[in-house]
């Protein structure tokens, strides 16, 4: 009866797209065909900034988005976008699956969204065409493309690199021709964008491990009965494990392809100086008591 429209900027077959489809399948079974989900993948309904607004206005019901566009809207999401805040992917899972994750999901509600679940966004690392980055000194003066976000720009500046915002579509030729020296991303994007063809050095510093989030429009949510709300929330939670399995497989496949292409992957790297350089970024962006408390809680999670 009721079809929930869901948006995703990733293409069909991508782990997040498949996860939301899986959620729809579960929901359909559990509500006896009353509620199903229709996924609009490949940014058909717009870029994330647009679909976030559309979700708020109730034009679409579900939305899988990255945290970045929410940073200046829902303060709590900033904390997971901080560089080196997590010790690794497993640590991120433990934090987001626990009470801290629940608190962040709840923080969406006053802004017109219902936070349902966190998906993986992988871990972002630096790649470039000039030289292997083995220490923080190697990054000095390098022109690195980052997303248009204050935290990311400040992080690059703190590392001594030259943060260069640029539309994603221009990055390939920009690296190829030398407008910029490199960029940063996770394994699957490094591979699918073809950037590995032009950037031969990938340094696994994992500076950002930012989960992605599935939110529902508060307007659509309020139309559901309490029972259906519970069913939606549960189906979303249940889709997370499917997503994570697919993500690991995808990451592995991308890694194999990139390594086979002869990209030099730098794994042995002392992250301590990188983390130490982040003090100024934390000082500037972790300003409220709420954020300070969240950072402290993440740091004290095993």
């Amino acid at each position: 009866e009721l079809t929930l429209k869901s948006s995703d900027t990733h293409p069909d077959g991508y782990p997040t797209v498949e996860a939301v489809k899986h959620m729809g399948k579960l929901l359909k079974e559990r509500t006896n065909d009353r509620i199903c989900v229709e996924v609009f993948h490949s940014a058909q309904l717009g870029q994330e900034k647009d679909t976030i607004e559309q979700t708020k206005f109730g034009v679409i019901d579900l939305n899988r988005v990255s945290m970045g566009p929410f940073n200046n809207l829902v303060e709590e999401t900033k904390v997971v976008s901080l560089p080196y805040v997590f010790k690794g992917v497993d640590h991120m899972h433990r934090v987001m699956d626990g009470p801290i994750g629940d608190d962040i999901l709840k923080a969406f509600e006053p802004h017109g969204y219902v936070g349902l679940a966190f998906y993986d966004g992988g871990s972002r690392s630096f790649y470039n065409k000039v030289k292997p980055i083995k220490s923080i000194e190697d990054l000095k003066g390098m022109k690195v493309r980052v997303m248009q976000s204050d935290i990311f720009v400040d992080m690059m500046t703190a590392l001594g690199a030259n943060a260069t915002p640029m539309p994603y579509g221009e990055v390939y030729s920009a690296i190829q021709t030398g407008v910029i020296d490199g960029a940063e991303n996770n394994w699957p994007s490094f591979e699918s964008s073809g950037h590995y063809e032009v950037a031969g050095y990938y340094t696994l510093d994992e500076h950002l491990i930012v989960p992605e989030v599935l939110v529902m429009s508060k307007a659509s949510w309020d139309k559901l009965s309490a029972e259906d709300q519970a069913a939606v929330r549960q189906a979303a939670k249940d889709s997370v494990s499917v997503m994570r399995e697919m993500w690991v497989a995808r990451e592995k496949a991308s890694e194999e392809k990139v390594r086979a292409a002869g990209v030099e992957v730098i794994t042995e790297i002392d992250k301590a100086p990188f983390m130490a350089a982040m003090d100024s970024v934390y000082e500037k962006h972790v300003t409220s008591d709420k954020l300070k408390d969240l950072v402290a809680r993440i740091r004290s999670t095993d």
């Binding site: 003066g141 022109k143 248009q148 030259n162 943060a163 260069t164 915002p165 640029m166 407008v179």
Partner: peptide, 14 residues
């Protein structure tokens, strides 16, 4: 700024 002074302006695009 980027090509001659190796210093990107982050505000110019937006």
């Amino acid at each position: 700024a980027r090509y001659i002074f190796n210093d990107s302006l982050v505000w110019s695009e937006p």
